[in-house]
């Protein structure tokens, strides 16, 4: 097991190195200048500023310098916020995205599991169709449509929650629900499929035969096994949610990281693009690693084949 994890961590660093290099190249291919007032400045004035930020050096020199700083954990200074170092910027914005993402994930998973179980247990009844419809809606309607709907119904029409801005926990309710629609749908579909498969297997038949109650069968036998594949898909979903959602954040005027990332690309803010990409990558890779380890613990076959090499 330890060997397996060490190997995975090593791969992780290689992936990060490749991601950083690739992003660097793509970034340098972006047209335009990071200066907001580039349009107004003469070529000489622009050169002076580029010189100060080291943008006049040959690309390979910039690359080596950047990777060196990165290894030291220094992401550099933002162009949009002239006085803010990238780490502080990301951390301050990430806080809000994380809260929303975590709430959406927990809420979405629980609701999704319940829906999926109902559908499986009451297969081909109105309950099943109802929860399938909800799942399909959740997958096919983008979260920002839900966001606008929720905002209108529960904040503008009935004033249960805030329209926007970050005031108290109440501000986080509607955006979290909007973000949760995806996980609800994913969890519901997975649980339903798995449960149906499990419910038709021999050992459930045995359980029924020995006179176990309906609840016992559903929770003790079927549900646990149906959960395993769900953990795998929830990993990437979690990474996506925790790292923010551009549109939902914008609709509720929440100062999260998703919106900031897109803005940094549009304004050629190299340091922030790199910082955010690296942050997202680490997040995703670590979560996938955790999921794999969890999966390995749960399912001995994976651990054996992984460690056996």
């Amino acid at each position: 097991m330890a060997k397996y994890i060490i190997k995975r961590v090593a791969y992780m660093f290689i992936s990060l190195f490749l991601i950083a290099s690739f992003t660097f190249v793509l970034m340098k291919l972006l047209p335009g200048s990071p200066l907001a007032s580039a349009e107004k400045l003469s070529v000489e004035q622009r050169e002076v500023i580029y010189e100060k930020y080291g943008l006049n050096d040959p690309i390979p020199v910039q690359y080596v310098r950047y990777m060196g700083n990165l290894a030291k954990g220094d992401f550099g200074v933002s162009f949009q916020f002239k006085k803010a170092d990238v780490t502080t910027l990301i951390v301050s914005k990430l806080k809000y995205s994380m809260i929303l993402g975590a709430q959406a994930l927990v809420f979405g998973t629980i609701v999704g599991i319940v829906l999926g179980m109902i559908a499986a247990l009451k297969q081909n009844t109105i309950w099943d169709y109802g929860s399938t419809v909800i799942a399909i809606l959740g997958v096919s309607i983008p979260s920002f449509v839900f966001a606008v709907m929720l905002q209108y119904v529960f904040a503008v029409h009935w004033e249960f929650f805030d329209v926007g801005l970050w005031n108290s926990w109440k501000s986080s309710v509607l955006p979290s629900i909007a973000l949760a629609m995806g996980p609800i749908a994913i969890a519901a579909r997975f649980i339903r499929t798995e449960m149906i498969e499990v419910l038709s297997s021999d050992y459930i038949m045995l359980a029924k035969a020995k006179g176990a109650s309906w609840l016992e069968i559903a929770f003790k036998h079927a549900f646990r096994n149906a959960l395993i594949p769900l953990i795998t898909v929830l990993g990437p979903v979690a990474a996506g949610l925790l790292t923010g959602s551009l549109v939902v954040e914008q609709i509720f005027a929440i100062p999260g990281i998703g919106e900031q990332f897109v803005k940094s690309i549009n304004s050629n803010d190299f340091a922030v693009i790199m910082g955010t990409t690296m942050f997202f990558s680490v997040f995703l890779i670590v979560i996938i690693l955790i999921v794999d380890i969890l999966y390995g613990i749960i399912d001995p076959r994976i651990r054996l084949s992984g460690g056996g090499k």
Binding site: K95, M98, I99, A102, Q103, L105, V106, W166, N167, S168, W169, S172, K220, R224, L227, I228, I231, L294, I297, I298
Partner: peptide, 29 residues
């Protein structure tokens, strides 16, 4: 099977602790 459940429960627990920790800071905003 109970081990699997434990793993899952701890996964959810970690998430909720994380959630609670973040939640505390909201009042500062």
């Amino acid at each position: 099977k109970s081990r699997k459940l434990m793993v899952l429960m701890s996964f959810l627990l970690v998430l909720s602790v994380f959630l609670a920790a973040c939640g505390g800071k909201k009042d500062d905003a």
